[in-house]
Amino acid sequence: MSPKNRIKPNGFKYLIATLVILIVVYSFKLNSDYKKLEDAFSEQKIELQAELDEIIEDYKNINVKNKDLSQRLVKEINKIIVLRDSIKNLEKSNYNLIVKYSRKIVKLERENRRLFIQVDSLNKQNYELLQENIVVKNELEEKNASQKTLSKKNRSLLKERKVLKAKVGIAEVIKVNSISATAMKERSSGKLTTTSRSRRTDAFKIKFNLEANPVTTPGKKEILIQILDENGEIIASKGDKKVKSGETIVYSDNLFANYDNNQLGVVSLILVNRDDISKGVYRINTYVDGHFTGRTEVKLR
């Protein structure tokens, strides 16, 4: 080897020293970069987990009454919890998975926005429906209150009407005055004359006046006359009829009068069998249009 190509011992030492220094520097740099990368990895893991925890909390705070949407929320929460736990257990060497999970989180956030918009829309609809229900409920309550008030007024009016009807009914009754009853006997000539003897009585003559009444309806009025002996037995029964009191009476005569709201005289002649007439007091009752209107008596000896 020529002297020119030979490396000087001192120069070789410097070369070795320089290489060692370079290797140390490079190793230190590699170690420093690795440490930074490792710290960044740990920091990114923590951030991703924190972000997923926030998303989970957001889901849990959603109050949804819709059954299908609520089930979907539960499904999404479980999916996010699995992803968070996967990141938590991620090894330091799996740097590429951090990027993958970051993309997943971005996708989740997009889905969250869509889902939350849907939830907000449903909540808004529910709120509007609730407000409508409140309005309808208030309207129903007002109507019910109004109905109760009207029912109360109606009951009051019906009661007043009933009282008024009763008063009008009383006012419509045609009263009878100047009622009198006379026993009559028939002479051989066929003429009837008065008598006070029971064994000669062939008829009873009843006279009375229908008083004027401008309230009652004019027209044909039915009149019933009842003759009773001291035992309450009907004399000369002609039939029976139900009157306004609800009682069914047996009458001795019935006739009709054309009433024009003015005073009207009425005469009834009721023929009897002498054999049925005995001594005593006979009571005569009158009914006009089904109402009891008067009473008189005649005594026979």
Rank of each mutant, 00 (worst) to 15 (best):
M1T: 09
S2E: 06
P9I: 10
N10Q: 12
Y14M: 07
L15H: 02
L15W: 00
L19M: 11
I23R: 06
I23F: 14
V24W: 06
Y26I: 10
F28R: 10
F28G: 15
F28M: 13
S32W: 03
S32G: 01
S32T: 07
D33G: 03
D33W: 05
Y34W: 11
L37Q: 15
D39Y: 06
D39W: 02
D39A: 13
D39T: 10
S42C: 07
K45W: 05
I46Q: 12
E47V: 15
L48S: 10
A50F: 05
E51T: 15
E51A: 14
E54F: 02
I56H: 05
I56W: 02
E57T: 10
D58Q: 13
I62S: 04
N66Q: 11
Q71S: 14
L73E: 01
V74F: 05
E76M: 07
E76L: 09
I80E: 04
I87E: 08
K88T: 10
K88H: 12
L90W: 03
K92C: 03
N94V: 01
Y95A: 11
L97Q: 15
L97N: 14
I98V: 13
V99T: 15
S102G: 15
L108D: 08
L108W: 00
L108Q: 09
E109L: 14
R110T: 12
R114I: 06
R114M: 10
D120N: 15
L122E: 08
L122D: 05
Q125H: 09
E132F: 09
N133M: 10
E142C: 04
E142T: 11
N144C: 03
N144E: 14
K148R: 14
L150P: 04
K152G: 14
K153T: 10
R155N: 13
R155T: 07
S156Q: 12
L158V: 02
E160T: 08
R161S: 13
K162M: 09
A166C: 04
V168N: 08
G169F: 00
I170Q: 14
E172K: 11
K175E: 12
S178R: 08
S180V: 07
A181M: 04
E186M: 11
E186W: 00
R187F: 03
S188G: 12
G190Q: 03
K191H: 10
K191F: 09
T194D: 09
T194Y: 01
T194L: 01
S196I: 06
I206S: 05
N209V: 04
L210P: 02
E211Q: 11
A212K: 05
A212E: 05
T216H: 00
K220S: 13
K220C: 00
E222A: 10
I223C: 03
L224G: 01
L228M: 13
I234S: 13
A236K: 06
K238Q: 15
K242T: 15
K242Q: 15
V243C: 07
V243S: 07
K244W: 02
S245N: 12
G246Q: 10
I249P: 04
Y251C: 06
A257I: 07
V266Q: 02
V266S: 01
V266L: 02
I270D: 03
L271C: 04
R274F: 04
D276L: 10
V281F: 01
Y282H: 05
R283N: 11
R283W: 02
Y287D: 06
G290I: 06
F292G: 06
K299A: 09
